[in-house]
Amino acid sequence: MMDNKLFFTYLIVMAGVTYLVRTVPLLIFRKKIENRFIKSFLFYMPYAVLGSMTFPTIIYSTGDMISGIIGMLVGAVLAFKNKSLMTVAAAACIAALAVKLIMMI
């Protein structure tokens, strides 16, 4: 078991770096950016981040590929139909759960 002093040292380093990474740019970049390249870059960036975070990890996120792929397909179809974040997430979980239950039979 880790002692409290060590735990808090880890916690402070971990949370401190995470906080600075988020906050320093928010303090520094206060003027409107006019550069067209940078504007376009920033427009595309969140989609790129989520794209690389989601694929291919999503198909392994439930512990087995079959329920992962089915869950992904259900989520993708509902997302394409503009359903809310919560509906999409819940439906993907239920689909993955259903597949797992069927495979247990």
């Binding site: 992962g68 999409v88 993907a92």
Partner: peptide, 12 residues
């Protein structure tokens, strides 16, 4: 475990 990734799909 798929919840977060499904949310990403709903965003992108």
């Amino acid at each position: 475990g798929i919840a977060l990734y499904a949310m990403f799909l709903a965003i992108i």
